[in-house]
Design a protein around this nucleic acid. Structure first.
Lengths: 92, 92
DNA sequence: TTGACATGCAAGTATTCACTTGCCTATCAT
DNA sequence: ATGATAGGCAAGTGAATACTTGCATGTCAA
């Protein structure tokens, strides 16, 4: 999951899905191109989404020939829990 | 900063500094070896720490020939702020 | 059914990144 | 001063990974 966040394009995909979920692959592609100025191909985006799904950060459901993607940010909470849990040291 | 978190060894270093700060490079090395069973060399750890410093996740101060490292977890908050900020969509 | 559309799979390439190797600088104790 | 300790710098190597290219599968509308 940390490796999934390491790529800027993947983080932008999460931003996009954070604004609006149930987007198809092509929708994500065109939005990345127009709103964020990224020139990635469909296949590249598809592979990025596969990484995000494997990390549990994106879930998808099929609807006919469309695959609708949504963000699943819950795994991110473990980051805060791991290092921002107010100080193991100074706690009683 | 996200790339800094992508490596398991660097995350373990943050864990170690989270338990106890102001550790020297050699302290971190030996603790990683004993407590976490990692066999990394001093140079490897040194480079990892440099990455963590560049990401703003670790700060260091010099004390004579020692360099004391501490965790600076504040940058991690932007992760929560970016995707866990309860739903831009459903907010009024 | 047929063509167009949305997505999936897989091999190849090129870049990135972690790690090593070897040597150098600085500080402290004796 | 001198040896020992703590750390720094930089080029090289091997593995991981982002991206491309080309073709295949599945779904829908006409």
């Amino acid at each position: 999951m940390f490796k999934a966040l390491a790529d800027p394009t993947r983080r932008t995909i999460l931003d996009e899905l954070s604004e609006r979920d149930d987007q198809t692959l092509f929708e994500i592609c065109s939005r990345l191109a127009t709103k964020h100025g990224l020139g990635s191909t469909r296949q590249a985006i598809s592979q990025h989404i596969a990484v995000l799904e494997a990390a549990g950060l994106v879930s998808a459901r099929r609807d006919g020939r469309y695959k609708l993607h949504s963000i699943t940010p819950e795994p991110l909470r473990q980051i805060a829990d791991r290092w921002l849990r107010d100080d193991h040291r100074k706690a009683p």
